[in-house]
Design a protein around this nucleic acid. Structure first.
Length: 484
DNA sequence: TCGACTGACACTTTTGAACTGC
DNA sequence: AGCAGTTCAAAAGTGTCAGTCG
């Protein structure tokens, strides 16, 4: 499920997360917020790059503050060492493990400094993100997600044969999450074969409306993978979550390859070239067994994590010690020569040469956190209208940029008429209690006074572009209770 | 002037509809 | 009629490169 299925229905506001508390200069209305720069994100100590409001305990408590759009773990660097909001969110048991399937391939790229092309229309990643998961409850339902976060606060430039810092990073962009299309699926499904995130696309188009992951060029990023125990993507009550990263998957975004070695490596290993078997896809039998790598469970501000290696507080970005000196590639290497990949183990190369771009401090790259808990007790659905009900026009057309919709509330009550299932929206994009069913059992629509909720991982902010409710009206509710 | 970016290009792989045969 | 396998065109993917832009 790239967002393509869901995103198409939610429009460009998908993945856009306004700040937790709207600042004075936050655009109150008009347009989406892709280009909005979060002042909080400029300060390492305050980040709202998390993903799931469901992880925010405040949202699981009646009468809590308005929903925070997202609260996945922070990036490896930003907010590093800073106090995180206390959280009692459930965690997955500690025996949940994730390994990187094509680790050796990633290592080969990492040895030279992985570069990922980003384009306006979106470019897939190569190497692809392919993982295996163990330790899940075979019968429990899980969501698998991925996002990509900045590794540091620097912008880079290619200097002859190596990467070096070139000033401070651009302000962070709205983060988007890739939901694996199999989500939700039982643990047995996730564990039976490698899971491929090959459909992730990267773009530098800040106005992207395709749901691709928006990144800055010439910046370093790292993919993160999240396992969430939940019945469906609408669930607010989660049975736990764990996040993982792999140090080999750090990459630099470029609009054109800078390092000739990376170019050659891509050519040699690219699935579009006859030299190599098919793409790394969990659904394909032809797989490149590049060895596995145990993931590093991520520090999660929402998991009451306990870093095994206590991180040292990070100074402000401007004062932060720069990454380690940039090792240059051997000068006598003929960069135009064909790379003899199998003859040099990437790990060996890394040990002797190091990657061609600065490595983050070890404590940033190797945090390990425990995240274990039992699923919370079922919650009784409760609806609490915390303020006067807001009513929307009879039709809720696209694109209605209502400022009232830009806050973080997500639940709506349908009134004024039944809502039939039409082509304008997909019933799968929202849920309602109870649905109207046809005699044959098919979903026919939603009755008046139904309460509609949207996929909770989606940004609650912004209008639900693509959703239309002709003949009906939506009444937004504030609810702090859990849905399930 | 230079580095970063864009779009067009040639080429390959993937996908899905149409067709065929059992 | 239904299913499985094959074929083929379109779509989507790749890296390259010349031109544009700030």
């Amino acid at each position: 499920m790239y967002h393509s299925e869901l995103f198409q229905q939610y429009g460009p506001s998908y993945g856009v997360r306004p700040p937790h508390s709207l600042t004075a200069n936050y655009p109150a209305s008009g347009g989406h917020h892709d280009t909005y720069r979060y002042p909080e994100l400029e300060v390492p100590s305050q980040r709202y790059d998390g993903l799931f409001s469901a992880l925010d305990p405040s949202q699981r408590i009646l009468g809590a503050a308005p929903l925070t759009p997202l609260s996945l773990p922070p990036g490896p660097t930003l907010g590093f060492g800073q106090p995180h909001p206390p959280c009692e969110a459930p965690r997955l048991p500690g025996n949940v493990k994730m390994t990187l399937e094509n680790k050796e391939l990633w290592k080969q790229f990492h040895a030279f400094g992985t570069e990922m092309i980003i384009t306006k229309s979106g470019r897939r990643m190569f190497p692809q993100c392919k993982i295996t998961v163990t330790g899940l409850d075979p019968d429990g339902k899980y969501l698998l997600l991925a996002d990509i976060v900045p590794v540091d606060n620097f912008r880079y430039k290619w200097q002859e044969d190596h990467w070096e810092e070139s000033g401070r990073a651009e302000p962070r962009l709205p983060e988007r999450v890739y939901i694996h299309p199999d989500s939700p699926a039982p643990g047995s499904h996730w564990m039976k074969q490698p899971i491929s995130f090959h459909k992730i696309k990267l773009t530098n188009n800040t106005l992207d409306q395709m749901g691709h992951i928006i990144l800055h060029s010439m910046h370093r990023y790292q993919p993160r993978f999240h396992i969430v125990r939940a019945q469906d993507v609408f669930s607010r009550r989660w049975g736990g979550c764990s996040s993982f990263t792999f140090t080999e998957t750090v990459f630099l975004t470029v609009t054109a390859y800078q390092n000739e070695k990376i170019t050659q490596l891509k050519i040699q290993t690219n699935p579009f070239r006859p030299l190599y078997p098919g793409p790394c896809d969990s659904t394909l039998s032809e797989e490149l067994d590049m060895g596995g790598s145990l993931a590093i469970p991520l520090l999660s501000p929402d998991c009451s994590f306990h870093p095994i290696t206590p991180p040292t507080p990070a100074p402000p970005a401007s004062d932060a010690p720069g990454p380690s000196p940039i090792p240059s590639l051997p000068g006598d290497q003929d960069q135009s020569a064909t790379l003899d990949l199998p003859q040099q183990d990437a790990e060996t190369f890394l040990e002797t040469e190091g990657p061609s771009y600065p490595e983050p401090p070890a404590d940033r790259a190797s945090r390990l956190f425990s995240c274990s808990s039992e699923p919370p007790a079922p919650q009784i659905q409760m609806v609490c209208v915390s303020r006067p009900v807001q009513r929307f026009p009879p039709s809720f057309p696209v694109p209605q940029e209502s400022p009232q919709l830009t806050d973080s509330q997500s639940d709506f009550r349908l009134y004024g008429g039944d809502l039939p299932c039409g082509a304008e929206y997909s019933p799968s994009a929202c849920a309602v209690t109870p649905p109207i069913r046809s005699e044959d059992g098919g979903l026919r629509g939603y009755p008046m006074n139904s309460e509609i909720r949207f996929a909770h991982f989606l940004p609650n902010a912004g209008p639900k572009l693509g959703l239309q409710f002709p003949g009906s009206q939506l009444q937004r509710l504030y609810t702090g209770g859990g849905w399930m």
